[in-house]
Computed example of a mutant assay.
Amino acid sequence: MADTRGRVLIIAGSDSGGGAGIQADIKAVTCLGGFAMTAITALTAQNTQGVFGIHAVPEDFVRDQIRVVMQDLGADCLKIGMLATAGIIRCVRQAIDDYAPTVPLVLDPVMVAKGGHPLLEPDAVDALKTTLAPRATVITPNLPEAGVLTGLSLSTEADMRAAVPPLRALGAQAVLLKGGHLEGDSLLDLLVETTGETEYRDSRLHTAHTHGTGCTLASAIAAGVAQGLPLERAVARARAYVRVAIETAPGLGTGHGPLNHAHTVQPL
């Protein structure tokens, strides 16, 4: 029987600054009542000002982390974030096929850090598209990531809708196209499933404290899926969680600051 806490195995890179990556993923899943486990794909020397170094984890060790977690604890959902190289992407897909072939998968196609540093090697984009996207329950690109995946220039709501068919053609069961990079104060996220389309609209929050929003949102969605929520509800809850986390951000650092992941937690 599935663990009612919602077990999420997160396969992603580490952020030494604690705002994004594995650290944000663990916080988000935990603060939404799930149980977070990890397979770390890369280490970064990172803070709110940027990424100062990346060290990829050996592929065999990435596979070992997935194997031992799945053989002992199991998972109700997988969340994939930063994968760094084509080799790690192929390794992760094989490990999932071997040890988690039927587990739902939330794929966040992490390519660039908030400060602009690339987190995915250029030759790895095709591997991501052909190897992992077809296995995903939902893929969660922002507009720049969707532009890389489709070859389109995306800056308007009309551009977003034009990008949906090529994104769907990658093979994921659903696409959540995030419109945070749209101009103006009105923002749109678009969830497209085989059963239809859901629009999520919000006003822009004018703040520098948005580091890790993509990682956090994808992990919050994964927690909801792991807990048995329909995807539409999982996305709605995740978006509400992230919005409050931005609104109540602690104001740390001198660059792109982290969120308040723990706003759901009531101290004893």
Rank of each mutant, 00 (worst) to 15 (best):
C77E: 01
D97V: 10
T38D: 00
M111L: 14
D64L: 11
L188S: 10
V225M: 06
L152H: 04
Y241T: 03
I139M: 15
V68R: 12
L187A: 05
G81A: 04
T254N: 11
A245G: 00
G228N: 15
G6N: 08
H256L: 02
I80Q: 08
L143H: 01
A36G: 02
T48V: 05
G228A: 12
G87W: 03
L120K: 14
M1C: 12
L128V: 07
G251Q: 08
K178C: 05
C91R: 06
P104K: 11
G33C: 09
P267E: 05
G115F: 06
L120E: 13
G17H: 04
P258I: 03
T210H: 06
F52T: 05
G19A: 13
V103S: 03
V51G: 12
G251V: 01
R168I: 08
H263R: 12
R7L: 13
T156D: 04
G253N: 07
P134C: 06
V175A: 05
P267L: 06
V112M: 08
F35Y: 14
A95S: 15
T140Y: 01
A146R: 05
H256N: 10
P144S: 10
V192Y: 01
A45R: 07
P122Y: 14
D60N: 13
P258H: 03
F52D: 11
A45I: 06
V225Q: 04
A75T: 00
R93T: 08
A113E: 14
D3I: 02
A24T: 11
L177S: 03
A236E: 13
Q65M: 07
V106F: 08
T264F: 07
K178P: 04
I246E: 04
K79P: 02
A249P: 15
C91F: 01
V57H: 02
V125L: 15
I80Y: 02
T156G: 03
A56M: 00
A20N: 07
G87M: 05
T130A: 07
Y200A: 00
G17L: 07
P144C: 12
E183C: 14
G21H: 09
Q46Y: 07
V138R: 02
H256I: 08
A86R: 05
E121Q: 15
L32H: 08
L78K: 02
E197V: 13
L268A: 07
L43A: 10
A56V: 07
H55G: 00
L176K: 07
S16Y: 12
L78R: 03
R7H: 12
T254I: 12
T213V: 10
T130D: 13
C77P: 00
I26Q: 06
A100Q: 11
Q23V: 09
Q71G: 09
P165T: 02
E157C: 07
R239Y: 00
L32E: 14
R201H: 03
F61K: 01
A218F: 10
V103H: 03
N47E: 03
S186M: 04
K114G: 13
A234D: 08
Y99R: 09
P258G: 04
H55Y: 11
T210S: 05
R204K: 06
I89M: 10
K178E: 14
Q266H: 13
A222C: 00
L128Y: 09
